[in-house]
């Protein structure tokens, strides 16, 4: 069973000619089939965790370990991590000029699966996945994220999640900027992948709204670069009612 183990992870970033520590010792284990929600106020380091796991060059790992099924993730390049089974659905997916969605998806699937998918079944697979996400077929001919609305970008991320079938999926604020309809479509997509039981999900969010659609097994409160409280789904209800105030005032500097 696939397991992602994060131990005492410390991460810094260079900003304004100074080195700033963003993650200050994160411990978390995500197993296949589990869904963990990471919730926290803005600036607590949630997205840094997501991008550090994916290997974004902006972030420097200064301490700790990340293992995926015992393999050292931090030693891997960005593409190796993806091929090892890590997937990051980005909060702000970038435009890639000149590359169509269909070409992108096929190239990506070929890289992840280690061989080009058979064209006939692949076309069908993509078409059906797009239908489930209420995406128009013409979408495949557009350039990656170019001119996409906020909702289209997120659907496109979840489309990739469905097609690439990672071991561990990190969803970085996939709910932000979505209206209720888009949120439901996107959440259904995530749930389809979760229901296979094959993926461990790390759901990073600022709001509890998405948790009405995607029920987490564990909820972690993130503040000032580390997990300050962990619990079950009921912790989300508490956050819904009380907000992050208790964590940003007391728990942080302690």
């Amino acid at each position: 069973m696939a397991t992602l183990e994060i131990r005492d992870l410390h991460v810094t970033v260079e900003a304004d000619n100074a080195t700033k520590e963003i993650l200050k010792g994160v411990d978390l284990t995500v197993k296949q089939g589990e869904t963990h929600a990471i919730m926290g106020p803005n600036g607590s380091g949630k997205s840094t965790l997501a991008y550090s796991l994916a290997g974004h060059p902006k972030y420097t790992i200064t301490g700790g370990t990340v293992l995926l099924d015992g393999e050292d993730v931090l030693e891997m390049s960005v593409d190796e991590r993806a091929r090892a089974g890590l997937f990051l659905a980005m909060q702000y997916p970038v435009e890639v000029p000149g590359v169509s969605v269909s070409n992108f998806l096929r190239t990506s699937a070929t890289a992840i699966r280690g061989e080009a998918p058979k064209l006939r079944t692949w076309v069908k697979e993509v078409k059906e996945a797009m239908q489930r996400l209420n995406m128009d077929p013409s979408f495949a001919e557009r350039n990656v994220n170019e001119g996409f609305s906020g909702g289209e970008k997120k659907r496109h991320e979840i489309l990739q999640l469905e097609l690439l079938k990672p071991k561990v999926a990190i969803l970085d604020e996939t709910d932000s900027g979505l209206d209720v309809d888009a949120l439901r479509v996107v959440s259904e997509g995530v749930n389809r992948v979760r229901e296979t039981g094959e993926v461990g999900t790390l759901l990073i969010t600022h709001y509890t709204r998405i948790l009405r659609y995607i029920k987490p097994d564990f909820v972690h409160v993130f503040s000032a670069g580390r997990i300050v409280e962990s619990g079950g789904a009921e912790l989300a209800d508490k956050l819904e009612n009380e907000g992050y105030e208790a964590y940003t005032k007391g728990g942080v500097s302690a």
Partner: peptide
Amino acid sequence: FYLMARGIPAEEARRLVVRG
């Protein structure tokens, strides 16, 4: 980064973009 995060090696990512 985006293309590599989808498993595509750096060289292939550049080729994909330029060919496109």
